[in-house]
């Protein structure tokens, strides 16, 4: 099995997939980091201080002013504000300047769309490219069962997802450490917020060091990426054309991003995988798209989708005639 996985990895490296992923991350990262510096600069300019309490207080007030015309996001904003107030009341800086805070925010913003897109670059053509190259004929006429061939591909996907997380983590760290300094790994962060009917529930709030929080975030991001990877992988088996497979997946992701903002009244939408991608939000304590969704619920929904996808992929791959 190891030699099969090593084969698959050879192909990924041969196609410079990881380098491409790395470049994309680097470019986007620079944009984000620049935007971040600009943003904090403008706040600083407005209130003329670098006292985080004053900054946070200003943010809360700004938020309160936006509440009246926040429309459907009102509830979410409200909870966000209550949370900020909680940080302020407990004298904990929610955004201690430095690389770790940037990583935390960047990761939270990239799990729903950016990371899945990167994963798709690897996963979406894992099988379909073999078919378009014609190499599938060679692959399937080895003395290796189809099950093992696909399994090795899937395990390689798991490894690649991890590799992308590693590249992502390393690059975000490197770039943000240069731009924002390397402080704040042990800064306290609050986690365990939840919301109940538009009100912040603080009964389970805990204080953890930032590095642990980031580790949790990476765990969740990895999980989401893996689920997206698995589904793209399935599409790659089902659909001949890589482009079509990617298109389907992107459509799902985008519809998920849209749906997450408007399904609060469509209860059963919570069983769609794309509505459940924002798992890091639970860590943060932002209100879920549909009332009553919890971290374990979302993880479970994603798991079910991934397993179903995997079973479909294997069933089809093992039965399908290759022309």
């Amino acid at each position: 099995m190891y030699s099969l996985i090593s084969n698959e990895m050879t192909k990924l490296i041969g196609r410079r997939k990881f380098i491409m992923v790395g470049l994309i991350i680097a470019v986007l990262l620079c944009l984000f980091a620049y935007a971040q510096t600009k943003q904090s600069e403008s706040i600083r300019e407005r209130i003329g201080t670098s006292d985080w309490r004053q900054e946070l207080q200003q943010q809360i007030i700004d938020g309160q002013n936006r509440l009246s015309n926040a429309g459907p996001w009102r509830e979410q904003l409200q909870i966000r504000l209550q949370q900020m107030q909680y940080y302020l009341d407990h004298d904990i800086n929610p955004s201690q300047p430095g690389a770790p805070t940037f990583i935390r925010g960047f990761l939270e913003n990239s799990t729903e769309l950016f990371l899945p897109l990167l994963i798709m670059m690897v996963a979406a053509d894992m099988v379909s490219s073999e078919r378009s190259l014609g190499t599938i004929k060679l692959l399937l006429t080895r003395p290796v069962s189809r099950f093992r061939v696909l399994l090795s591909k899937y395990l390689t996907l798991v490894l690649s997802v991890s590799m992308i997380m590693l590249i992502y983590g390393f690059l975000t760290f490197a770039i943000s450490a240069i731009m924002f300094g390397n402080d704040g790994w042990t800064a306290p962060v609050l986690t365990g917020f939840s919301s109940q009917g538009g009100e912040l529930d603080i009964s389970a709030v805990r204080l953890i060091p930032q590095w642990q929080y980031i580790l949790h975030e990476f765990g969740l991001a990895w999980y989401v990426s893996l689920v997206i990877g698995t589904l793209s992988f399935m599409l790659s088996v089902l659909i001949r054309s890589t482009a079509a497979g990617m298109g389907v997946m992107i459509a799902c992701l985008i519809s998920g991003a849209i749906l997450s903002n408007m399904v609060s009244s469509w209860e059963s939408a919570k069983y769609l995988f794309m509505v459940n991608l924002g798992v890091i939000g639970y860590l943060e304590g932002s209100s879920p798209p549909v009332e009553g969704m919890t971290l374990s619920f979302s993880l479970l929904v994603l798991l079910v989708w991934a397993i179903a996808g995997l079973i479909t992929a294997f069933a089809v791959f093992m039965k399908k005639d290759v022309y």
Partner: peptide
């Protein structure tokens, strides 16, 4: 399949790998 060697239609290989790497790739599956 251990006893079969085959070329079905065109001899498609991975174009982004060298001939040697291609052979090593297939050797790893035997």
């Amino acid at each position: 399949m251990k006893h079969i060697g085959c070329i079905v239609e065109n001899p498609e290989m991975y174009p982004y790998l060298s001939g040697w790497d291609n052979l090593r790739y297939f050797a790893a599956m035997l």
